[in-house]
């Protein structure tokens, strides 16, 4: 074969460069898969002693299941309170920014909400500890006095305000920017023609929103809420700082209850041996719970991708 100027020298060095570069790119991708696999494997290995240990040696003295169950429930309760508060308000704020606020303020407001999503969780936790908890004490006393017959508001109310309900409210404040900024993105993508058609038929603004905006954005809202749920389940610092922990109890305004993430953060620094394995096992449970929640959210997004444009 005759060599030609186009393929001779530069080509061989170029081919090597191609191989190195594509190999590096492939390697990085595979590294991510290995890392995630390693997360699961290492957590499992380090957690194993818990599952084979004598049940009496586990904290609480009744085996791992009896230890983990109350804090799983606590985690779910905290996240549920957060979502019950944050979902309607978050969607309301998103609608306010996308369809109600004057144009000039809407842009800066959206930017502000994005900035608030970036505030570190420990600062929300410190705020809950120092400002919110004391401020809520009179409210809890009122609830215990007037609605105390409902188990979740059973008194006597905590005098420090460091209760499950406070933790749930702090979590709600933290997930609110997430739900708002994701739903706002989707509301803004509603086809303008749909909205204008609804208005042209004589719909009021609210009717336009229920007939054109909400049906279009529904899958996006659901996935925004699920992602908020994932954050609320795994959130550590707010709960670790705000909740004064205890056993699982139905009342939300008394000292008590615990979540997985806070349990790990509060006890890990002093843990060793079997206690360490226990906490890592708890982390594994948390990992699985958030994994399921996130996969459901991603599934919903993937199914409706062509409509919502959310990703």
């Amino acid at each position: 074969m005759t060599t030609n100027a186009l393929t001779s020298k530069s080509s061989t060095s170029g081919r090597a460069g191609d191989k190195i570069f594509s190999g590096a790119a492939l390697g990085a991708g595979v590294l991510i898969l290995i890392t995630l696999f390693a997360v699961a494997v290492f957590l499992l290995i380090q957690a194993l002693p818990t599952f084979f240990a004598d049940p009496a040696e586990i904290s609480g003295g009744a085996g791992f299941f009896a230890y983990i169950w109350p804090i799983v429930i606590g985690t779910v309760i905290a996240a549920a309170i957060a979502l019950l508060i944050a979902t309607p308000i978050g969607i309301g704020v998103a609608l306010f920014i996308s369809h109600f606020a004057p144009r000039k303020v809407a842009g800066p407001l959206g930017y502000l909400i994005d900035l608030l999503a970036a505030i570190p969780s420990v600062i929300y936790g410190a705020w809950g500890y120092m400002v919110l908890a004391p401020a809520l004490v009179p409210g809890y006393e009122w609830l215990a006095k007037n609605l105390g017959f409902i188990p979740i508001f059973e008194g006597p109310a905590s005098q420090t305000g460091k209760t499950m309900l406070t933790a749930g409210i702090v979590l709600a404040v933290m997930v609110l920017p997430i739900i708002t900024s994701l739903s706002r993105e989707i509301f803004l993508q509603t086809p303008k023609l749909h909205e204008e058609a609804a208005l042209a038929l004589g719909a009021t603004r609210w009717e336009m929103i229920t007939t054109a905006v909400i049906p279009f954005a529904r899958p996006g809202i659901i996935s925004a809420v699920m992602l908020g749920l994932g954050r609320a389940l795994g959130e550590t610092m707010a709960v670790a700082l705000v909740l004064s922990t205890g056993n699982l109890i139905p009342s939300l305004i008394k000292t008590g209850n615990q979540t997985i993430a806070a349990e790990i953060a509060l006890n890990f620094p002093e843990a060793f041996g079997l206690r360490l394995a226990e906490l890592i096992a708890a982390g594994l449970v948390l990992f699985l719970i958030t994994l399921v929640v996130n996969m459901i959210a991603r599934g919903i997004i993937a199914r409706h991708k062509e409509f919502s444009g959310a990703n």
């Binding site: 991510i32 995630l36 795994g234 959130e235 993430a261 890990f268 958030t290 929640v293 996130n294």
Partner: peptide, 28 residues
């Protein structure tokens, strides 16, 4: 198929609670 798997697991990684990431590094 590999790139689909990577995309999926990157999404999964986005949702890892921060404390679990810490536990992983500590365990490793």
């Amino acid at each position: 198929a590999l790139s689909k798997a990577i995309t999926f697991f990157v999404d999964v990684m986005t949702g890892i609670p921060s404390i679990v990431a810490g536990l992983f590094a500590a365990a490793f």
